[in-house]
Amino acid sequence: MSINLHDVLLRDFSSMLKDSNDHDAIIKVGEDSNMKEFFAHSSILKARSNYFRRALSIEWTTKKDNMIEFKKPNIDPAVFEIILNYIYKGEVELTNQSGELIFELLIATDELLLEELFYKLQGYLI
């Protein structure tokens, strides 16, 4: 017998993203006035994305106060929020998003090599 309890797992991961106080990475996304800080768990980012696995490895990062700081200036914070949601929950809500934003999301997923999402979006747009 196998028991499938994905629902609760999903809920718990969402809450990790929303109200966690044990994150170890700050991702500074966007530039200048349009810059926003996201708090995240490096272990989850690494587990879900090869890009982050390399980017957040000890070879490429230095920790400040036990916190990894990573800057991603060329992505819009709104786009990154969707990406983060995808990373934590495997969910992407596109219903109320503008076409432009979705296009930007497509470009960002290509750069970050989030292939699964990239192909979904490509299918969605065509």
């Binding site: 890009y51 390399r54 980017a55 070879e59 490429w60 990062t61 990573f70 800057k71 991603k72 750069e111």
Partner: peptide, 15 residues
């Protein structure tokens, strides 16, 4: 001397 380098920038360059 890799510690002076930024992964994000270099990656983005190659990208």
């Amino acid at each position: 001397n890799a510690s002076i380098l930024s992964f994000e920038e270099l990656y983005r360059n190659a990208y």
